[in-house]
Write a protein that binds this DNA or RNA. Sequence first.
DNA 1: CTTTCTGCAAACTCTTTGCACTCGT
DNA 2: ACGAGTGCAAAGAGTTTGCAGAAAG
Lengths: 150, 150
Amino acid sequence: MSERQTRQLVATYEAVRYARDHPTADDVHALVRRRITRVSLGTIYRNLKKLVAQGRVRIVPQPNARSTRFEAMLESHEHFLCEICNSIIDLPLPSRMLPAIAGLRRAGYGVSGHSVTFFGVCPQCRASGPGATDALGSARAKPPERVPLA
Amino acid sequence: MSERQTRQLVATYEAVRYARDHPTADDVHALVRRRITRVSLGTIYRNLKKLVAQGRVRIVPQPNARSTRFEAMLESHEHFLCEICNSIIDLPLPSRMLPAIAGLRRAGYGVSGHSVTFFGVCPQCRASGPGATDALGSARAKPPERVPLA
DNA sequence: CTTTCTGCAAACTCTTTGCACTCGT
DNA sequence: ACGAGTGCAAAGAGTTTGCAGAAAG
């Protein structure tokens, strides 16, 4: 019955895994197209939804975002959203939240997950000068990756 | 010059403060309409954006949400998103994140804010039976409020 | 073979915007 | 009076969906 292993589904998952920069559906579409020329955006959406339901892909929580961004579920981690270049940087997650989760459970909540996100300006954009390019040519520069956290 | 104190702007802010349940732009529109009948949704959006820019209102970070939800900025707190009734519950925030923020600053980040969100099933939906109403008549029941956290 | 999945395009939802008019200051 | 703000309606952006044909099991 359900859940077929189509080329499109496989390629969609691999695209999300491959693109470490939290791609949008459109980004994923572009990546999958390299392998399957005639794939449609609708199919990408359908497959992303399927992967999220399966728990193999996660939606990155962002406030005020035009488009949804995805990531393959690796280990737990936190995110840093740069308000200048709009990139999302992964941070390792020290399991700081365990006591809070225990407290919630004690209070009657069923906790299935959590997310921690920091907002601000990433080191790169910081270096490029505080009053550099803001309105004109800055949106979404090259996304840096994996910065260690004390 | 800038920033006039129009009836619409004031009413928009008051609506967000009044509605403790993290209203959408449409919810706010409905509330403001009670006082200003001919207010338009476009104006609500413009004013919400203004309030967010001023820092008087905050956008609630949610993964996979159709519409943006807002809240008046009171003290810092965390959120619990119920996956069944779709309500957002405020939790008090123990400043657990301070060491992490210090670490990020040390690593060159400019941190302007952060958010902590838990996902799962709220006590109310839990009580209504695990396999109760899921697909049919459940979306967005009455949002509970202010549950203490260990 | 049967059933799920796909491509395409149209439909939908939420949000933004241009324009002429209104209303704070 | 001047210019920021408003209502309205149309335009945009992102996502979903119906349908006929393709393809996985």
